[in-house]
Design a binder for these strands. Structure first.
Lengths: 317, 317
DNA sequence: TTCAAGACTGCAAACAGTTGCACTAAACCT
DNA sequence: AGGTTTAGTGCAACTGTTTGCAGTCTTGAA
C-alpha cells in the first residue's frame, strides 16, 4: 500500500540501510548512488515515515504549544509565529487549549511528552511543583512566567506599564487608576509595581477584575467614583469594556477620561476610539520560544514592549 | 530510561502481549490480571508510546487542521472547537497555517499524510485536481468548499446573505450595495447570487475587494458614489473598514448608511457601532469536521447561519 | 609491491508496541 | 463421562527506520 524504504531499496538495487542514509546522513553515501536512490524515491513517491523514525531515534520532529484559550485574541499571533518558526525547521506543531484549567494543562503536557521533542507553555497556571516535576519528562520553554530550571521568554510588561503611566503623566494627568487583573496573576503584579513607581502621579488600584471585556465594563462605576482622569487597564479587553461602561455613564474617552490598554490585540485597533496600548511582542515570543526549544538552549530572555499611541488618550480637561 | 511495555510485563509477571491488551483491548483480559497490570503500570508511570503503536496499527490518533491564517479572527473559534472535539476522543491536533498560499497547503497535506489519521481543510485554495489527488493519500474533510468525493461541512452563507438583505429591505432600504470579496472566492459567489434574489431591493455590486479592513476602507468612496442607503459587506473586517472609511467621508453609520457584515467575529462585537452581522457557526463546523473525520463518515453537511442585529443598521432617512 | 587508511555499503539488531495463532484450563452441554 | 466451547494467556512475527559493526574495494604512501 504505502511505499517504504524497502521498496526504494529493491527498486534501486541497494540495501535499505543505504536508502536510510541517503535521507538521514547523505554525506555517507556515494554521490552516484545517492542520486539514483533519490530519483527512484521520487518516482515511487516515497516519504520517510516519521513515526518509525521516532521509534529508533527518539526524536519526533514535533513540538507542542499549550495556551489557555486559543480564541483569546492575545494568542493567535503567537501561535502563528510559533508555527512559522517550527515549519521553517521542518517541525510540526501540536496546539492545545487548556480552557484555563491547570489540570488540563498538566494532563496535556503529560500526553504530549512521548510525542514531541518539546513543548512551549504560555502563561502556565499550574503550580511550580507540578511544572518542575513535568519538566523531567519533556523539555519545555515557558512564556510569561518565571520558572527556575526552564528556558523562559518574558515580555517586559513592567516596562510597558511604566511607559503607559509616563505617557499619561506627560499629558498632564495627576491621578490615574490601575484597573487590575485577576488576583495572583504574575502579569498583574508586574504591572502594578511598575506603575506605582512612576513619579508625579498618584495611582489608585481598582480590582481585582476578571481579565475580560465584562470585567472592564463592571469596573466603570468605580473608576468614575475614584475621580481619576486617566486609567491603565490590565489588558485591551478590559480597556474596551471599560470604555463602553464609561460611555454608559456619560463619560467620553478620551475627552473625559483617557484609557490605555495592554497587549495590542486586533480588536483594539479596530474599535472606536482606537486604543492607545502597550504592544506585546507576542509573535517574537512565539518564534523565539520554538527556536529555543529546537536548539535546546536554556536561556531566559526578556522581550521589549513599546507604547503605541492612538486615540484613547488625551490631555485632561 | 523511559518505561516500556516490557518493564510493566516483567514487573507484573505477565507477557507483553497481555499488557498490550489491557490497554488496547481490555475486554480480552481477565479482570484480576487487568487490575494488577494497571496498578503496576501506574506505579511505574508507564504511558503507551503512540509512535510505536502507530507503526503497527497504522493509526496515529493525530489529526491535522489547516487554515489560511491563524491570526485571522475568523479561525480561532473554529480551531478551539476542533481541538476540544479531538481531545474528547483522545486525539491530538496539529494545526498549520498556509499563509494563504496554495503551494503551502499542498505541501502541508503531503507532510501530514503519514502522521495523521485525517486532516480538516478550511476553505482550501488549491485546485480541485490537486485536492483530489491528495485525497488518495489521506482522508480529509473540507470546510466551506464543495469538493466531490470528500466529506464536506458547509456554512450556509447564501441563506445568511439573504437574511441580511431582507433585514435591510424590511427597514425600508431600496438600493443596497454588496461590497464583494476577492474574485474567485466560493463564498463571495454564494453571497452574491443569494443577495441578488431578494425581491424589492436593487443590488449594486462593488468589487472585487481584498477581504480585509483595508479593502473595506478603500471601498468607501465607491459606496458613497453609488448612492445606496444600505450595504452588505463580504465579511466583518471589510464592514469595519468600510464604516471607518465612510466616517472619514462624513457619513455616519447607521444614520446615513446601514452596514451589515458577515462572520460575527469578536472585533465586530467590540467595535462602535456594534456590528449587525451574519453569524457563522464556526465552532460547530470545527467540531463537526473532526467528528466526521474520526468516525470516517463521508457526508456533506450544511450548517445554518443566522442574523444578529446590533447597532450598525437602522431605517434610512 | 605491500600495507594502511578511507570510503562505501551490507548485515542484523534494536526501537515499543500489536495481533494472528496456538495452547491450556475451566465451564458448559448432552 | 466425554466432547465442545470459551476465556485467558503466551509466542513470535511484523510495522518502517536507524545505526554500530564488519566487510569490500579503492586509493595513496612507503
Amino acid at each position: 500500500m504505502t511505499v517504504t524504504i524497502r521498496d526504494v531499496a529493491r527498486a534501486s538495487g541497494v540495501h535499505v540501510s543505504t536508502v536510510s542514509r541517503t535521507f538521514s546522513a547523505p554525506h555517507m553515501v556515494n554521490a552516484a548512488t545517492r542520486s539514483r536512490v533519490l530519483t527512484v524515491a521520487e518516482e515511487l513517491g516515497y516519504r520517510p515515515n516519521r513515526a518509525a523514525r521516532a521509534l529508533t531515534t527518539g526524536r519526533t520532529h514535533n513540538l507542542g504549544l499549550i495556551v489557555a484559550d486559543i480564541a483569546n485574541p492575545f494568542f493567535p499571533p503567537l501561535i502563528k509565529a510559533a508555527h512559522a518558526a517550527a515549519r521553517q525547521r521542518d517541525y510540526h506543531l501540536f496546539v492545545a487549549d487548556t480552557d484555563e484549567e491547570p489540570a488540563a494543562e498538566e494532563e496535556l503536557i503529560q500526553a504530549f511528552s512521548k510525542q514531541v521533542d518539546g513543548v512551549v507553555l504560555c502563561s502556565p497556571r499550574s503550580s511550580n511543583k507540578a511544572l518542575e516535576r513535568l519538566a523531567e519528562r519533556v523539555p519545555f520553554v515557558v512564556i510569561n512566567r518565571r520558572l527556575r530550571g526552564a528556558a523562559t521568554v518574558l515580555m517586559d510588561v513592567g516596562h510597558g506599564a511604566r511607559l503607559a503611566v509616563e505617557h499619561l503623566a506627560g499629558l498632564g494627568h495627576r491621578r490615574v487608576a490601575l484597573v487590575a487583573g485577576p488576583a495572583g496573576s504574575w502579569t498583574s503584579a508586574e504591572i502594578r509595581t511598575a506603575a506605582e513607581r512612576v513619579p508625579g502621579v498618584e495611582l489608585v488600584v481598582i480590582g481585582p477584575n476578571a481579565p475580560t471585556e465584562r470585567g472592564g465594563f463592571a469596573a466603570a462605576g468605580r473608576v468614575r467614583e475614584s475621580g481619576v482622569t486617566g486609567v491603565l487597564a490590565y489588558n485591551d479587553l478590559v480597556a474596551i469594556g471599560l470604555i463602553e461602561g464609561l460611555g454608559d455613564l456619560g463619560l467620553g474617552v478620551p475627552e473625559d477620561v483617557s484609557v490605555v490598554g495592554i497587549d495590542d490585540i486586533v480588536p483594539g485597533r479596530l474599535s472606536r476610539p482606537k486604543l492607545t496600548t502597550v504592544a506585546m511582542p507576542t509573535a517574537a515570543a512565539g518564534r523565539l520560544a520554538v527556536d529555543l526549544l529546537i536548539q535546546e538552549v536554556s536561556a531566559t530572555t526578556s522581550l521589549e514592549t513599546r507604547l503605541v499611541i492612538r486615540e484613547s488618550t488625551a490631555a485632561p480637561r
